[in-house]
C-alpha cells in the first residue's frame, strides 16, 4: 500500500491558506484577519446617554422594567431554532448571521423606536453585532440586553416557545 505523502498534505494546506488569504483580500465580502471583540458601554436608559453611535447595554433589571412598561421591541438575535425553543414574550427574531437590511420586521420598525437586542448572555456577541448593524441603519435607540436570555430564564421571567416568526 502507498504510504501517506505528508509533503503533499502540507502543500495542499499551504495552497489552500494562500488561496483563502488572496480571495479574502480581493473579495468585497472579505473579513478582517483578526476578529475584534465588541465593546459595549453599560448605561441606564432613564439617563440621557449622549453619543448614540456608542454601543450601549442594559442589565436584567432595566430590561425587566422596559418589558413591564411595554415600551420597547425586544429583538432575539439568535438563530431560528433557539428562538422557536424559547424566547422573551413578544420578541421578534432577526438572526444576526443571516441579517438582511430589508428584513420584513425591520422595515416595519420606527427609527425612533426603543429596541432591545439580546442573545444568550454576556459571552455572546450576536446581540452586539446585530445592534451595531441596526445603529448603522439609523435605529439610534438600540440597546444590548447584556445579561441576555439566560439571565431571563434563570429569573423565571415570561417566555414563550414554538412561535417561529414566518
Amino acid at each position: 500500500m502507498n504510504k501517506t505523502n505528508f509533503k503533499v498534505i502540507l502543500a495542499i494546506l499551504m495552497s489552500s491558506t494562500f488561496l483563502g488569504f488572496i480571495y479574502n483580500f480581493f473579495s468585497s465580502d472579505g473579513i478582517d484577519f483578526i476578529r475584534k471583540p465588541i465593546l459595549v458601554k453599560s448605561v441606564s436608559i432613564s439617563e440621557e446617554n449622549g453619543d448614540s453611535n456608542q454601543l450601549r447595554g442594559i442589565d436584567l433589571s432595566q430590561a425587566v422594567e422596559i418589558f413591564n412598561d411595554n415600551s420597547a421591541t425586544f429583538i432575539d438575535a439568535r438563530d431560528q431554532w433557539e428562538y422557536s425553543d424559547n424566547h422573551i414574550i413578544g420578541a421578534i427574531n432577526i438572526p444576526e448571521f443571516s441579517f438582511d437590511p430589508s428584513n420584513k420586521y425591520l422595515v416595519k420598525l420606527n427609527k425612533e423606536e426603543l429596541l432591545i437586542v439580546y442573545c444568550d448572555g454576556d459571552d455572546c456577541d450576536l446581540s452586539k453585532r446585530l445592534a451595531q448593524k441596526l445603529i448603522s441603519l439609523g435605529f439610534k435607540n438600540t440597546y444590548v440586553f447584556l445579561d441576555g436570555f439566560n439571565s431571563w430564564l434563570t429569573a423565571e421571567l415570561p417566555i414563550e416557545k414554538g412561535k417561529l416568526n414566518e
Partner: peptide, 17 residues
C-alpha cells in the same frame, strides 16, 4: 475570538481544494 476570522478564511478553501 482573535483566531476565528483566520480559521473562517482558511477552512473553506481547504475543504474546496
Amino acid at each position: 475570538i482573535e483566531t476565528i476570522n483566520i480559521i473562517a478564511i482558511v477552512i473553506p478553501w481547504i475543504e474546496l481544494v
